[in-house]
């Protein structure tokens, strides 16, 4: 236990050093902070600009759309803050710098997260969280104990889900260094996918993303469970409550994949 605390202490120290480094370029940092908040505002604004065209999205009204968009924003920006920079793993693999992480008696993933931590992203997360709370008040929710629990847990399960994707996406670099953009299709693509009611999508594309890859469980199904609406696409009600399970599964798979990846790592040989 003491050993574990010491390890956490070292990681925290690395994060602090990282943050101090980033604060050196002050103008740039402030601009990035503002930029990060604007990006989030823009994502949500985009949803509502499109909402205004037809007065609804995929058969859902304003409060429910806001709840989905903001829940998706919290989930994405939370994992963006904590892990999204692990995609820099490919630089570490390409240059062989990953060796140095393996030499230390700490989890290589935790180290990678610490040295790529970007504080500027906190702006985006804070803004999304505020919006989510507002959306919870605006939405017509018949509060029960289960729903309160879900409203609290859902952002975390979303963060875990997206974080698993970021880690899994970065892990691909152990085999394929230039894979960066493929992961973006699922991380940034997933953020866009989850911002809208999935009833807007069609055919195999919807089934693949919503159920096959689990993106429906980030915002769409939890919101249906919160507001107590049946799924127009006929997914049974009990499944709406399964987000934590899906997130748990995703995290497990990502961790497993990371381990396989690290075992597969070959240094540069130079």
């Amino acid at each position: 236990m003491a050993e574990f605390a010491a390890k956490v202490g070292i990681i925290a120290h690395m994060v602090r050093a990282q943050v101090r480094g980033q604060l050196q370029y002050r103008v740039s940092f402030v601009m990035e902070l503002i930029g990060s908040m604007m990006t989030n505002a823009l994502d949500v604004a985009t949803v509502f600009v499109l909402f205004s065209v037809g007065g609804g999205l995929g058969g859902f009204g304003g409060p429910n759309v806001l709840l989905m968009a903001s829940l998706s924003a919290v989930a994405f920006s939370g994992s963006d803050l904590v892990v999204s920079n692990v995609d820099r793993l490919r630089e570490y693999v390409r240059t062989g710098m990953f060796d140095s992480l393996l030499l230390r008696p700490l989890s290589s993933l935790a180290q990678l997260m610490a040295i790529t931590f970007a504080l500027r992203r906190v702006g985006r997360f804070a803004q999304a969280a505020v919006l989510y709370v507002i959306a919870l008040f605006v939405a017509d929710i018949d509060w029960t104990v289960g729903r309160v629990l879900l409203a609290v847990v859902a952002p975390f399960t979303g963060v875990v889900f997206f974080s698993s994707l970021f880690v899994a996406g970065a892990t691909v670099a152990f085999w394929w260094v230039e894979s960066g953009e493929v992961a973006n299709a699922f991380t940034y693509g997933g953020r866009d996918f989850t911002s809208y009611p999935i009833t807007m999508y069609g055919g195999w594309f919807r089934d693949l993303f919503a159920l096959g890859l689990g993106f429906g469980f980030v915002a769409y199904y939890p919101v249906l469970a919160l507001v107590g609406l049946p799924d127009p696409l006929g997914v049974p009600v009990w499944l709406h409550w399964c987000s934590p399970l899906v997130a748990f599964l995703a995290a497990g798979l990502a961790a497993l994949f990371w381990r396989v990846g690290v075992r597969h790592y070959r240094s540069t040989g130079s």
């Binding site: 499109l50 065209v53 037809g54 007065g55 609804g56 999205l57 995929g58 058969g59 394929w176 230039e178 894979s179 960066g180 953009e181 493929v182 973006n184 299709a185 699922f186 693509g189 866009d192 996918f193 809208y196 009833t199 807007m200 999508y201 069609g202 594309f205 919807r206």
Partner: peptide, 27 residues
Amino acid sequence: QATVAGAFTNVVFGFLRCYILLSIAES
């Protein structure tokens, strides 16, 4: 490889945006 990866991502986003705009046009 980067070209293939990039094109793949463009295609996924293409599906996303296409369905979204078509759904709005329909409604």
